[in-house]
Amino acid sequence: MTVDGAPTTRSGFVALAGRPNVGKSTLTNAIVGAKVAIVSDKPQTTRRAIRGVRTTPDHQLILVDLPGVQRPRDVLTERMQGRVESELRDADAALLLLNAEQGVGPGDRFIAALLKRAPVPVVIAVNKIDRCSKHETAVVLQAAADLEVADDIFPISARGGQGVQTLVDHLAGLLPPGPYYFPPEDRSDQAENVLLAELVREQVLRRTRQEVPHSVEVEVGEIEDREDDLIYVRAVAWVETDSQKGILIGAGGRMIRAIGTAARRELERELGTRVHLDLTVRVRKSWRTDERLLDRLGIE
């Protein structure tokens, strides 16, 4: 919409940065109002830059939930770090999310130094204040200010909703005037097969421990409409060792059945119809350094 040739709407991209497991995916889902990013208490849950789209009559805020910023240690994390830097260059603003429970640590300072070099305004949100006392919250808010990367700092609870609307209103005010990038009904730019694969991986993360969550990636290779409102989804869970495959399958196949049942329910909720999920586990040694597989999985 325009008035006398000038746009009356605002639209743009906000890059969401933070250490692994500070609640970026939860905040993305809260702002968008739909589940577009999987949630887990495991670090390195987000491996792709996920765009969540929030559209109102006067603005469209595209929130890019970046992979957890960290020092690269293999091809997978090198790609994740490269995507972080690329998204920051293309963003209209950046949002640094901190964990009130954990305070400000070396990882936060590492990210703050990265954001200081970004040519965009930076905002800080201190998450999980619902789990802290007023004194603890005041201490971490001061530590956030001491990072000297942002003038605007918002205490929030992404899970409970406290402070989220105030934060969104501020971010919307940083967006440049312009038309919308996405149709108003869109909530994400993820391809359907990627979104479904992530929903399956979420169930793997919820049920496995130690090295397994970091060594699993899920690929959806086929989505087919069949008779009687049934959708067939074929998915492969890639792991790096035979022992990880054994853990994922479980004694008598109990683990993979539990993962498949929970994942199927999530897929049915997302697709709004019955789903038959064909889930298998395969070994690809050192898949995190396999450039061709990473390309196929969409991890740029």
Rank of each mutant, 00 (worst) to 15 (best):
R73F: 11
E136P: 00
R51G: 06
G246Y: 09
K134N: 09
T137E: 07
R296I: 12
V126T: 04
A150M: 10
G33S: 07
Y180E: 14
H276T: 10
S243F: 14
Q203F: 00
E268T: 04
G252W: 06
D151I: 07
V75W: 05
L174P: 13
V212C: 05
I247L: 13
E202W: 01
V216N: 07
F182C: 10
A94Q: 14
Y180A: 15
V194Q: 04
V122T: 15
G160C: 06
A158S: 07
S11V: 13
V36L: 02
V220F: 08
R159G: 04
P183E: 15
D229T: 07
P121I: 08
V104W: 02
Q162F: 13
V164C: 11
L248A: 01
A30D: 07
N193W: 09
A197W: 06
G260T: 03
A235C: 08
R201N: 05
D146G: 00
V122D: 12
R117A: 10
I247Y: 01
S157W: 08
D169R: 12
L248K: 00
A158V: 07
R10W: 09
I231D: 13
R48H: 14
P57F: 02
A112P: 00
V283D: 15
I231V: 15
K24P: 10
S11H: 13
E300S: 09
R117T: 04
T28I: 03
T8R: 01
A6H: 10
P183Y: 13
E185Y: 11
E217S: 14
I299N: 07
G253V: 01
P119G: 12
T26C: 02
V164T: 11
F110S: 03
G160K: 11
Q70M: 11
R282K: 15
A150N: 08
L174V: 15
R257E: 06
L205G: 04
L76C: 10
E192D: 14
D58A: 08
G252Y: 08
H170C: 11
L95H: 10
G12E: 07
E224D: 09
A263T: 02
D108H: 02
V122S: 14
S40H: 04
L76G: 09
V204A: 01
K245Q: 06
A144K: 03
I124H: 04
D189W: 09
A113K: 05
M1A: 15
V36D: 03
H59Q: 08
R206S: 00
R71T: 11
R10L: 11
D242C: 09
N99L: 00
A6E: 14
Q165Y: 01
L293N: 12
V122K: 15
L294Q: 05
T55Q: 12
A143H: 01
L76S: 10
P7I: 01
A172V: 05
A145F: 02
L277V: 04
V216W: 04
P20C: 03
P184K: 13
R209L: 03
P43K: 06
